[in-house]
């Protein structure tokens, strides 16, 4: 699968990555090669195969509904880029 420059732009937008104009070509080549490589998968007949999401055939374990966490805001916000009055700050969100 050869990707177009437009594809790269769209993927970058989904992934929230900024790809500069001079990098586009390299990404296009690299990603197209990787996709070509993984298309080896088409050799296999997988029509009636159940997809495998987990290595273990297990069911989810469940937690008892109880509060076990205490407030650690100060510790957690110590490593945050920007906070004020206990809130994380981000550039203005327009809804």
């Amino acid at each position: 699968m050869a990707l177009s420059t437009e594809d790269i732009r769209n993927i970058a937008k989904l992934a929230k990555l900024q790809i500069n104009a001079d990098e586009l070509e390299q990404y296009k080549q690299d990603l197209s090669r990787i996709l070509e490589f993984v298309e080896q998968m088409n050799q296999a007949d997988v029509d009636n195969i159940e997809p495998m999401a987990h290595p273990q055939d297990m069911m989810q374990s469940l937690r008892v509904d109880e509060v076990i966490e205490s407030d650690q805001r100060e510790k957690f916000q110590h490593i945050a880029p920007a906070t004020q009055d206990g809130l994380y700050l981000v550039p203005k969100v327009i809804e």
């Binding site: 993984v38 998968m41 088409n42 296999a44 997988v46 195969i49 159940e50 997809p51 495998m52 999401a53 290595p55």
Partner: peptide, 14 residues
Amino acid sequence: AYYLKAQKIRRLIS
């Protein structure tokens, strides 16, 4: 074409 197929191949390998 990609993700689901890969999960199926994962099954075959397993």
